[in-house]
Simulated assay, not measured.
Amino acid sequence: MKTLVLDNPTVFTFQEKEEPTSLQADEALVKIKKIGICGTDYHAFRGKQPFFSYPRVLGHELGAEVVGLGSDTDAIHVGDRVTIEPYLNCGTCQSCLNDKGNCCENLQVLGVHVDGGMTEYLKVPIRKLHPSKILSFEQLALVEPLSIGAHAVQRAEVNPKDLVLVIGAGPIGLSVMQFAKLRGATVVVLDINKERLNFAKEQMQVDFILEAKEGFTPDALRSCLDGFLPTVVFDATGNPNSMKNAFNYVAFGGKLVFVGLFIGEASFDDPLFHRRETTLLASRNSLPQDFSSIIQLMESGKIDIKPWVTHSADFEALPHVFKEWLDPKSKVIKAVVTL
C-alpha cells in the first residue's frame, strides 16, 4: 500500500508498505479516504513540532471506511463511514480511570507519537471509531479539529452571559468560536491576519473582530464590549508572547484557557492574577463524547464546515503542494487530501 513518510523536516517520500492483515479482536482495518492537514503537520514538516521524532507518517484528521473487523460489534460494521479519534490512551492510568483519556499518562497520538493516516490502510482500535450514515468522508475528517474547540469550550463552561475573546483565528480558534457561538456567547476575535479576521466575521458570524496591531491594549476590548473585559479568554496561538499578554485581557473573576501550547515556560504577573481571581485552564485534545456530539450537530446541519475547506489535493500531489500551503499568500484555512 502507498504510504507517505516524512523522513526528516521538509523531506516527504512515498513508500510501499504491506497492508495490515491480522487483526486483534478489538481492532478494525480502515481505508483512508480523506485527510485534513493540521497545524501539527505543518510544524512537523518545518521541524518545529514538540514531542516528535522522524521518520513519521503524518495524518490524524481522518475520514475513512471500515473494511475489516477483528470481532463483531453492534456499534461498527464493515462498510461504515467513520471518523477516527486519534488519541490512543492506555485505559489503565489514573487519568484514564477517571474518564480523562485525553490526558492519559501514556498517550500516543496518531501521526505524532505513532504513524498516522497518510497511508491507504490503517489498523486502529474499534473503540476509536465514530460512524455516521449521513456525513461525507470530508466532513468526517473535520470532526477531530472541531473537537479541540468543543472540548475547550466545555472546559470553560461557556454560557450565554459570557463575553468570549478568541485569540488566533486559525482552524483551532475557529473551532472555539463555533462552539462558543453555539452556546450563545458574545464572541470577539483577535488576530494579526486581516483575511482570517474577515473569514471569522463572514463565515463564523462572530460579533466583533480586532486586529492585533503593535501596542494593542485592553481598552480596545472594552470599546466593543460596553466598557467590559471578556469573561472567558481562549488563546489558540501557541505563541508565548500572546499567551503572556492574554492575562491582561481577562475580566475580574474571569477565565483564561490555553488551547495552544509551546515548548517553554509561561510567566504572568502574580498580583494581577490574584487581584482578578483569574481561573487558568489548559485544554488538551478532546474526549469521545465530543466526537459523538459534533457528529450529531453536523448531521442536523447546525455545523457547516464547507467554508472551512479552502484547499484540496490528491494524495500523490501532496508533497508538491505542501510547501505552497505553508505560504501565507496561499490563504489556507483548511486543506484536505483525497486518497
Rank of each mutant, 00 (worst) to 15 (best):
Q24A: 11
I295P: 02
K100F: 08
K128F: 03
E195C: 00
K33E: 11
H320Q: 15
P131L: 04
P145Q: 01
F247I: 05
A317I: 04
L4A: 08
N198D: 12
P125C: 04
L197W: 07
L197M: 11
A200K: 03
V114S: 09
Y249E: 04
G116V: 03
E299W: 07
R196T: 12
A25W: 01
V206E: 02
V66D: 02
A150E: 09
G101R: 09
F268G: 11
I84P: 02
E265F: 03
A251F: 04
C224E: 05
L97E: 15
G91Q: 08
S132H: 11
A335T: 01
V233G: 06
E65C: 03
W308I: 07
S300V: 03
I37K: 04
P240K: 04
P160M: 10
R196C: 12
A313Y: 04
V124G: 01
E157W: 05
T237E: 06
T73R: 05
G168V: 03
R56I: 06
A75D: 10
A75N: 08
F52G: 09
P319L: 10
G238N: 05
T3A: 07
T83C: 15
I167T: 11
V109K: 08
D162R: 01
E144H: 08
R196N: 10
E18L: 09
A220M: 13
G238W: 04
A220D: 06
E202C: 02
V332H: 03
E105N: 12
P131D: 01
E19C: 13
A185I: 03
P160W: 08
S22C: 02
L174F: 05
V78E: 14
L280F: 15
G238M: 01
S71E: 07
T92A: 13
F247P: 00
P288I: 08
E85R: 07
R284S: 08
G227K: 11
D314Q: 10
Q296V: 06
D226R: 13
P55Y: 06
A200C: 15
A220H: 14
K181S: 00
